[in-house]
Nucleic acid binder design. Structure first.
Lengths: 251, 251
DNA sequence: GCGAAGGTTCGGCCGCGGGCGAAGGGTGCG
DNA sequence: CGCACCCTTCGCCCGCGGCCGAACCTTCGC
């Protein structure tokens, strides 16, 4: 009785179309059913059925608005679950499955060339530098944030990942609310581009909110994040030297 | 490319038989293929195929030993992933699925009677009191441990779940190694019987190891844990009054 | 009111994959 | 050496579920 519940939940994510939907929804925005259909490359009707199933399992929430129907991740904890699963998927590659017909292009992928053109290369590069992981920063910037806060004595990892008193002060100065709720404040989250941990949890989510509100960074495209000039000071306070990273956007 | 990986990983757990196997393997022991087949209620040949698939996805590891082939969870992180998923499954019930043929017995379940007889009632009670969650303590005892360590000032939750200096001392006195590895030291894990958090992570795992070695508790049956008389002192040091909980085993 | 746009529901097609039994290995015991 | 045990591989069956297009329903614009 208890055991089939696990299988049912997993089955919801076990379909490529639904998995794609969940992953694109990880940008935290609400998407229409039509947009999700296009993203997954399926008919509108099929997408609608998938959304129904995802909603039934509590993964997404529907918000009807006029003739449009918006879909968003139901809960930050759901996002964390999806990321957790995706993380295992990426650490494990999962190549040794029979029927390797996943690769559609007959082009042989010699070695490691994940990008095909200049344009997508640039996009990949920007994504690698700074992007969101549902509701918090990831990529090179996210990793640097964790490192910086540790080096600056704002975080302590000796007895578990936790904010130090000084860290609490600095965040308060920056206007980031540190409220204790049901959700864990801080969690490590392995980054699939950097192969290093970045910070997830309620606190990094509040930090990203604040950073967007204050104009330090801007969401740009799907999951990409643009770092604005105003980010210099606050990030320096968090132990991150943006100039050294060299990813600040031009004018 | 990246997106189908998520679906493939989920698909591995999306089968009731494989899900059952994973859940029984959460007791941390190594099971034979035959035992897993019996647990899942399927033929030996089918079980063998499932184990192959689980192993291919990195969920379990096979250990050949003579003519027997033992199967165990591949990695503590895998166990955490499965628990994470199962946790979502249980918080979400997943009742509104078509084809409600899951309930095999025609007996109408009026209200809430999860157990059918005295024997299973006792077993359920013991499981509710103290059990393992892969490699750490859960159930009423697990929750009490978290509460006690917080109350005794061994843990601090203000800036994230972390050990205090005093906590480090007490654990050292008890002979529990607090080693920092790749795995997170402390994590909250929602308990499906208590609906409250207990402690997961590298530290609780080391604590359970030490508790078994020192004869404070004993693994008893599948996931049940028996609390032995010698547990009184060390658990008191951790802020847990076992007499008040009333679950200590008799002579 | 009419048409268009966006979603949902329905019927039907079809391939994937889980199920089993039988046959084919290795390994240990007598 | 040969049997017994335990697991793996193979061939086959069958049902579940993802897919689509058609029809319908709701909402917005004119």
């Amino acid at each position: 009785m208890e055991t089939i519940a696990l299988a049912e939940v997993a089955a919801v994510l076990a379909d490529p179309s639904r998995a794609t939907m969940c992953l694109v929804l990880l940008d935290g925005r609400a998407w229409t059913v039509g947009e999700l259909a296009k993203a997954a490359g399926i008919a509108l009707s099929t997408a609608s059925e998938h959304v129904t199933r995802l909603a039934g399992a509590g993964f997404v929430a529907r918000v009807k608005q006029g003739r449009a129907s918006y879909v968003r991740i139901a809960d930050p904890r759901v996002a964390e679950l999806i990321e957790h699963l995706a993380q295992h998927a990426v650490t494990f590659g999962a190549p040794p499955r029979a029927g390797d017909s996943a690769t559609r292009s007959p082009r042989k992928t010699s070695g490691h060339r994940p990008v095909t053109g200049l344009k997508s290369s640039l996009r990949a590069r920007r994504l690698g530098f700074a992007r969101t992981c549902y509701d918090h920063l990831a990529g090179e910037l996210g990793v640097a944030l964790r490192d910086g806060m540790l080096a600056a004595g704002l975080l302590d990892v000796a007895g578990g990942l936790a904010l130090t008193p000084r860290g609490r002060e600095v965040l308060a100065d920056l206007g980031v609310p540190v409220a204790a709720g049901r959700r864990a404040l801080l969690r490590d989250c392995l980054d699939w581009t950097e192969r290093r941990d970045h910070l997830a949890g309620a606190l990094p989510a509040a930090l990203l909110d604040r950073a967007v509100d204050a104009g330090w960074v801007a969401r740009d495209g799907h999951r990409a994040v643009k770092v604005l000039p105003a980010a210099g000071e606050p990030f320096a306070a968090l132990g991150v030297d943006l100039d050294a990273l060299g990813g600040v956007a031009g004018p």
